[in-house]
Amino acid sequence: MLVKWIRCSVVDRRGFERGQRKWAGLLGEPGFRAQAGGWSRLRPGVAHLVAFWESRAFYDSFMARSHDRLAAAQAGTYSKVQTRLFEYGFDVKVGFEPVFADADVLRLAHCQVHPDRVEHFTLMQEKVWNPAMAGSPGMLRGLLGSAAGEEFLILSVWQSSAERGKYRQERVERLGLRAQTEADVRAVDGDVVALEPSWTV
Rank of each mutant, 00 (worst) to 15 (best):
L49S: 14
A51R: 12
F52D: 09
F52C: 06
F52W: 09
F52H: 07
W53M: 01
W53T: 01
E54F: 01
E54N: 11
S55W: 10
R56W: 05
R56Y: 03
A57N: 09
R65V: 08
S66M: 04
S66D: 15
H67G: 02
A71F: 13
A71D: 13
A71I: 05
A71V: 07
A71L: 12
A71W: 13
A71E: 11
A71C: 00
A72Y: 07
A72I: 03
A73C: 02
A73V: 05
Q74P: 00
A75K: 15
A75F: 10
Y78F: 14
Y78A: 03
S79E: 12
V81C: 05
R84P: 03
R84L: 07
R84Y: 08
R84K: 12
L85S: 07
L85H: 06
E87R: 10
E87F: 00
Y88P: 01
G89N: 02
F90A: 03
F90G: 05
D91L: 02
D91K: 01
D91V: 01
D91F: 00
D91R: 03
D91E: 07
V92M: 10
V92K: 01
K93D: 14
V94D: 14
V94M: 08
G95C: 04
F96S: 08
F96C: 05
E97R: 13
V99D: 13
